[in-house]
């Protein structure tokens, strides 16, 4: 299954490093505003893994906080 991993202050292995929040643009209901929804978000990755344990194992020992969510097919 696919998981989305969001790194807050930490770098997700194999993921993309995000530019600073200053460079972000927020789009809400079609309206654009400068800045980020979450200042702490620093990296993001989409991982293929058999289950949650496989994902958390790949994050073991890394500094920072990570949020892991399964990606649902639409």
């Amino acid at each position: 299954m696919q998981f989305v991993v969001l790194g807050y202050g930490g770098l997700v292995p194999g993921g993309l490093v995000l530019s600073s929040a200053d460079a972000a643009t927020t789009v809400r209901d079609g309206a654009l505003t400068p800045g980020a929804l979450s200042d702490g978000l620093s990296s993001v990755a989409v991982l293929d893994a058999p289950d949650l344990d496989a994902v958390t194992e790949s994050l073991r020992g890394l500094a920072g906080a990570f949020e892991v969510r399964p990606a649902e097919p639409r």
């Binding site: 289950d51 344990d53 994902v55």
Partner: peptide, 10 residues
């Protein structure tokens, strides 16, 4: 059911 938690002995 939704979070990807495996059903296995760790």
């Amino acid at each position: 059911a939704s979070s990807g938690i495996p059903f296995a002995v760790p």
